[in-house]
Simulated scan of single mutants.
Amino acid sequence: MASGRSTTSGIDRRLLVAALLAAWPAAWAAEGSCAKPVYLTFDTGHMDVAPLIADVLARHQVKVTFFAANERTKTGDGSLGEHWAPWWRARAAEGHEFASHTFDHVYWRADLPGGGFRVQASAGPDQGRLQDWTAARYCAEIDKAARRLEQVTGRKPLPLFRAPGGKTSPRFVQAMRDCGYGHVGWSPTGFLGDELPSQSHPNAALLDQALRGVRPGDILVAHLGIWSRSDPWAPAVLEPLVVGLKSRGFCFRTLREHPQWRDWIARKS
Rank of each mutant, 00 (worst) to 15 (best):
P232R: 04
Q120N: 12
A236G: 07
A146P: 01
E94T: 01
T102K: 01
A27E: 14
L16F: 02
E195M: 14
P86Y: 02
V221I: 12
D218A: 08
D111G: 11
P86Q: 06
E195F: 14
P259V: 08
D111E: 15
A136D: 15
V214T: 13
L207G: 05
A19N: 10
D208H: 11
A50W: 02
S169Q: 12
S100N: 04
D231M: 05
A22G: 04
H183P: 05
R137M: 12
R91H: 07
D77I: 02
W87R: 04
T75G: 00
P232T: 03
R267C: 03
Q151R: 08
A140W: 07
L158F: 03
L255A: 04
A35T: 13
G182I: 00
T7W: 00
G45R: 03
H258D: 12
K63P: 01
S169Y: 08
G95C: 04
V214C: 11
R248L: 03
R91F: 00
L158W: 09
G124L: 09
S3Y: 07
T168Y: 01
F67V: 03
P159Y: 06
G81V: 02
G10M: 10
G114R: 07
V17T: 11
A92D: 12
T254Q: 13
Q199L: 12
D104A: 09
T102C: 04
L130Y: 05
E141C: 01
R267E: 15
D126K: 15
L112I: 00
D12Y: 08
S3L: 14
R267T: 08
D263S: 15
K156Q: 15
G213L: 03
S230R: 15
P216D: 08
R148G: 02
D263G: 09
T73P: 11
S200K: 14
M1G: 13
T102G: 06
Q199Y: 03
H96S: 06
R14K: 07
G4P: 00
R5S: 09
P216W: 03
R109C: 11
A35F: 00
R13E: 11
L207H: 09
A29W: 14
W88M: 08
L245M: 10
F117P: 05
E97T: 09
R109V: 11
I53A: 10
R229M: 11
E97M: 13
H258S: 05
I265A: 07
G45E: 13
P170W: 10
A58R: 15
D43S: 05
R109Y: 05
L241H: 09
T168G: 00
A92Q: 07
T254I: 09
E82R: 13
F98H: 02
D218L: 06
A85W: 10
L206Q: 12
T168F: 01
D43G: 09
E239C: 03
R162G: 05
I265P: 06
R137V: 01
L130K: 04
L16K: 10
W108Y: 15
L192K: 00
V242C: 10
R137N: 07
Q120C: 14
W24D: 02
S33C: 06
I226P: 06
P170Q: 13
V221E: 12
W233L: 06
G95T: 03
V56I: 15
L211F: 01
F191E: 15
S33P: 00
V38L: 14
L220H: 04
D132G: 02
T7Y: 00
V184W: 05
M176D: 10
G10F: 08
P197F: 07
K268S: 12
C251P: 04
G217K: 06
